[in-house]
Design a protein around this nucleic acid. Sequence first.
DNA 1: CCGGACGCCTGTCGGC
DNA 2: TGCCGACAGGCGTCCG
Length: 271
Amino acid sequence: MPELPEVETIRRGLVPHLQGRRIVAVIIREHRLRWPIAPDFETQVVGATIETIERRAKYLLLHLTHGTVIIHLGMSGSIRVLMAATPPQLHDHIDLILETNQCLRLRDPRRFGAMLWHTGLIDDHSLLHNLGPEPLTANFNGNHLAVAAKNRRVAIKLLIMDSHVVAGVGNIYASESLFVAGIHPQLSCRDVTIVRYNQLALAIQQVLTQAIAQGGTTLRDFMQTDGQPGYFANSLQVYGRANMPCLSCGNMIQELRIGQRMSFFCPGCQH
DNA sequence: CCGGACGCCTGTCGGC
DNA sequence: TGCCGACAGGCGTCCG
């Protein structure tokens, strides 16, 4: 479900509830997520204090005193902060109960998400070790994309969705960024000029920044931690708008399957 | 190394 | 109304 802006929105919503709080208990109702919950997870986490809450790509990182809880929401995961006594509902798999009698509750119907325990440097974790740069930092730019495209010929949309190239760009924001940059999603990455890579990097940054400012995109069930939807859905230019007129030129938005994922683009604006 | 396909799961929606 | 297939915001793994 969530891409970078949604995870960042969740992170910001969690900070005031979690930062500096001690975890006093853990309830695991379902161990079978993308990877099984580690047998010693509860032992490691109970009694520890959440010092900082960070995001890397689409991973949420709860930094405890002596290790890190790595959370990934997969396609259908969601997190809420509730009173610990709130009765769990279907697919509410894990509670981290805080000293405040609140709990961080993970729900994930499809169980593509994960909650992992890691000690040591976070970049040493195998899931994070080979990630590309954060798109909203200075070391991400058009030149980085151009270098990553060397010796590759995949569709440009797949290149920017590759987390080893740039972290956190998923299906929605890939389509939206390519629209802003005026690039056809199926264009081979080897045929994108450096000028256009610069435009694309800026487009990715612009789209993600605006999406974060609007609290992410709610298509069906994404909720901010306060229960509010994200409002960027109102700003989508192409995603989910097949056979509707382009808001810029009036041509009909088209959809196309690229790498098993639906892609949306404007044939008038993107080449 | 690269690119493409697959599988992991449940819920929802559209068509018949 | 019910059934069935297609599809969904991700991503590691496997194969050629």
